[in-house]
Design a protein around this nucleic acid. Structure first.
Lengths: 200, 200, 200, 200
DNA sequence: TATGAATGAGTATTCATTCAT
DNA sequence: TATGAATGAATACTCATTCAT
């Protein structure tokens, strides 16, 4: 018999997580104190600790928010015909990253946190595993369509390369402020020697 | 008229930087306190501050150690004939990363620090810029050899993709413990549809 | 919407200021550490910093407590008839100094602090200026009553001498433990060749 | 059989004491560190500790330098005929204070130190006692010349007032930057109702 | 004697967390 | 539930002093 509605509880949690996320994005994890979160969220220290048992748990929630599942987007791609080339898939993935997650700075911060907090790490391992599984399905279809001799083997080998491209893009956008996902996917097309498509 | 030799001075600095590097690798930047560094280095607090003006400066030195210039390796590749394909170049780059720097965990930590300390950021921007410049030269040669219609344009577009592959590999090895550089470059070859070479 | 009353807040501040004052009196400013204040006040470090932003601000509050305005006493003297002689005025000033401020040791400490912290200095300059202004009014009245040829000029010249007598008395009571204000004012009377009054 | 001449030893000590004195004058006792003294004196830490056993001992030497005996000046005054009035004596005392000691800031700092270090205190008690003894002799002569009914009693009572005027002047010159000794002694003359002398 | 690198206890201040209201 | 005052261990850094050279 909760004293407040589940809905309100979720809203309050969201306020806290948003406050932490914004603070981390602006100042870096190590510079964000609870008083920062208290101020930004508009809640009191006591109230916050009513929703999260510790600062690390708020960070965990931020990580979970970042690591949203991208399976749906990928699966839609696989179903289409003809199968689009890798550069198109990357473009889709990168351009549909939610606004707040595309900020490479934030992503870098949370990746670093994963080194410290195994629970955060698990979140990322989970989402990356999922991404790779679906990616492998896509690549198998693609290489099949491309009439590679051994599409399964090629897909298995190059799956993690696709994932690395996503991660590399994010790191790059944080460190070099090169944030243009479309230009990036065009670069992938160039590297792969893909035929230009109308979309570009 | 220094009472200790320049050599000893460098050795002491190295002890401090090594202590910080190991501590960061094991616990993450935000959990490393000066007392950790004091203990690991075997020097006293006062002695450490005789070599570095602040904790941040030690971190900067760690970053500088990580961001060693890779130009030489790349230039040797460009000079060779025939020009090796991108997967070979990546393989070379990744396998010649110095032991301590290949630790993705450490790299992620320092990337995150770059978000906080502009001096650290500058170190990485510097090394990445250099990498990309030389990479573009390589790609131009490669695409020329491949008889692409517009090798210069293709090189310009795909340079940052090659850099992203390096960064993505590092991030991945930290988060997923997939640290096999050779397997990764084989994946790149598969994705690019390169003809297998004898070396693999 | 403060959770503690303004009253309690003032009381807590007073505890801190009193602790600092006692510590400074006993050990000298330069030997007083925050841990001393923490111990004496019975508050925790964190609590103290909730009331004062820094150690210097506590010292400033101590100085402000010392530098209470003495104008009222002096103005009452000026209004009386006949105007009492300088020795009586000094006696009044010195004997009505609040108990804690008469401690010359403390005063010396805070004077020294004034050399370091401009805000502390300002506090003393302020109170001394006020003292001198009112003192000049008194001296003008006194010299007029004494039928000096140029009471205004004499008052202007000797105002700072009266202030110096107050300051000198305080310094002396700190360094020589000669703290008898009445004996001091009798000495002033002797020096000035005043007729003895009944009060002495 | 000293390894260095007594002369050189004294010169080195003087360099150290001067360095400390200048540093204290500029920054206040509590802000002066040994490294400040090391730098200003041009000697090394080790060398300094060869001449003084501790930082406090250097401060003590500074205090001793400040508290130079003023008896000679006063005794010359007493011997003169007619005996000059108090304002003239003060003027003499204040204007013959050595340059470095007239800086009220420095004096305040050392007075405060006297509260902490009994040895420093003793230095000041000593010099003030001497000053007062000689001052009492002067005042007895002066009051006798003035044909006071009880010159001895008046002298005994007002001796400390004369000392307080010296101390008050110094405190005032530190806190209010009113450093004109001649103006001050003129003010004393005005307060005492002395006949103006030619010198003024 | 002189050097200055090294020591390590000590400094002011912060901050995640608690708990009486 | 919500508040925010209070806690106190932990933080980065300083500095008087020592001692091998």
């Amino acid at each position: 018999m909760p004293r407040i509605t589940e809905e309100r509880r979720a809203a309050q949690r969201a306020r806290i997580v948003d406050a932490m996320r914004d603070a981390v994005r602006e100042k870096g994890i190590s510079s964000v104190s609870m008083s920062e979160v208290i101020e930004r969220s508009g809640l009191s220290a006591g109230a916050i600790y009513g929703y999260f048992p510790s600062k690390d748990d708020i960070l965990l929630a931020v990580a979970e928010g970042l690591a949203a599942d991208r399976r749906t987007e990928l699966e839609r791609v696989i179903a289409s015909s003809p199968i689009p080339p890798p550069s198109q898939v990357l473009r889709l993935l990168l351009t549909t990253i939610p606004e707040f997650a595309r900020d490479g700075t934030l992503v870098l911060q949370v990746w670093a946190e994963a080194a410290r907090d195994p629970r955060v790490r698990e979140v990322f391992v989970g989402v990356l595993s999922t991404l790779q599984t679906t990616m492998e399905e896509y690549l198998t279809s693609w290489f099949t369509q491309e009439q590679r001799p051994d599409p399964t083997a090629d897909a298995r080998a190059s799956t993690r390369v696709m994932a690395a491209l996503v991660q590399g893009f994010l790191a790059q956008s944080a460190l070099l402020e090169q944030t243009d996902a479309v230009a990036f996917s065009r670069g992938v097309a160039a590297l792969l020697g893909e035929e230009p498509t109308e979309a570009d």
